[in-house]
Write a protein that binds this DNA or RNA. Sequence first.
DNA 1: GTCTATAAATAGATAGAC
DNA 2: GTCTATCTATTTATAGAC
Lengths: 190, 190
Amino acid sequence: MPFPAKTDFDSILNAALEILERDGPEALSMRNLASALEMKAPSLYRHYPDKAALETALKMRGSELLQAALERAIRDQDPIQAMRKAANASLKFARAHPYLYDLMNAPGGAPSTGAAKKLWNTILELVGAVTGNPDDTASSVAFWAYLHGFCSLERTGMFGQSGPKGGFKIGLEALIAGFSSRQKPRKLSA
Amino acid sequence: MPFPAKTDFDSILNAALEILERDGPEALSMRNLASALEMKAPSLYRHYPDKAALETALKMRGSELLQAALERAIRDQDPIQAMRKAANASLKFARAHPYLYDLMNAPGGAPSTGAAKKLWNTILELVGAVTGNPDDTASSVAFWAYLHGFCSLERTGMFGQSGPKGGFKIGLEALIAGFSSRQKPRKLSA
DNA sequence: GTCTATAAATAGATAGAC
DNA sequence: GTCTATCTATTTATAGAC
């Protein structure tokens, strides 16, 4: 299609994503969004009942993008290497889409959409392949918490000028080692 | 009595903290804050130049509170147990002060205040005592990222009804094990 | 489906009286 | 230091014409 589709659900969503990623959440007003589409704000309400619906759609889109990035990153990798690739892909995603990443992780912002579930299932498979438990919620939570925490702190500016100084790899390897050691259970000293 | 001041810097800060923690960030307007102090909004500007200054002060207060909680938690503990206590204290803090925690970790919200530095130094000491390196930035970053990530995901609602299912302890112990193994340096591959 | 016009509410911040 | 009054700007959202 040489010409973009007429204004509809997806066109609005794409424009919203572009504004969000370029200018941040404060720039994402219905007026500004309509303006980018060469329309007036009230017209948007024919396609989205309210702004919350638009934001929900943006979160879903974010989950899809991240999930796709993870799938690409882990393809044809052995389990442990897949975790490393997934970790780096997550970090890359958060850096490339900071405002979208913020929105996806905003307080009270975890809708149980299909996209979010699919993303979570990808994590579960990834971690399960290392721990040997295909539904290892606990380890997956730990893995995801670490990745998100690092992305979030970096985004906050917590690392300052000095940067994270290799902290990402050290924590990641410690988690991988911990997960791997549980694959073939043996007595551990506490 | 000749016109005693109705309020001051700290009284305003305390009221702001109370509003933030009880009703969330949207309730923290200058009007609402003034009202809680039985004042009018313009009066607040004699004590804080603008709202950003108030928020900066709130972040500092948050850092102080968390730092104090960590200090209490780790007192008289051996290094590894101190990490466990600190981790639980952080989680407890984030749960007890969700909106303040959000504000402290808001994007672009890491002011280099004395309180924030003191907090970070506490983490460095804590982790350094385990790894044997008193200035182990990398390991500290990993530790902090994990704690924050878990708190943040829980806050977002990412764990849903099922809860994190023991993921906190598993990741924490994996990190501790990884840090401990580095205490007595030996040749590592990479 | 898009428009004009406007409702209804909110915010941060300032001027100047006392 | 606090007040009244107000400015300025913004937002989401709706009513009703076309």
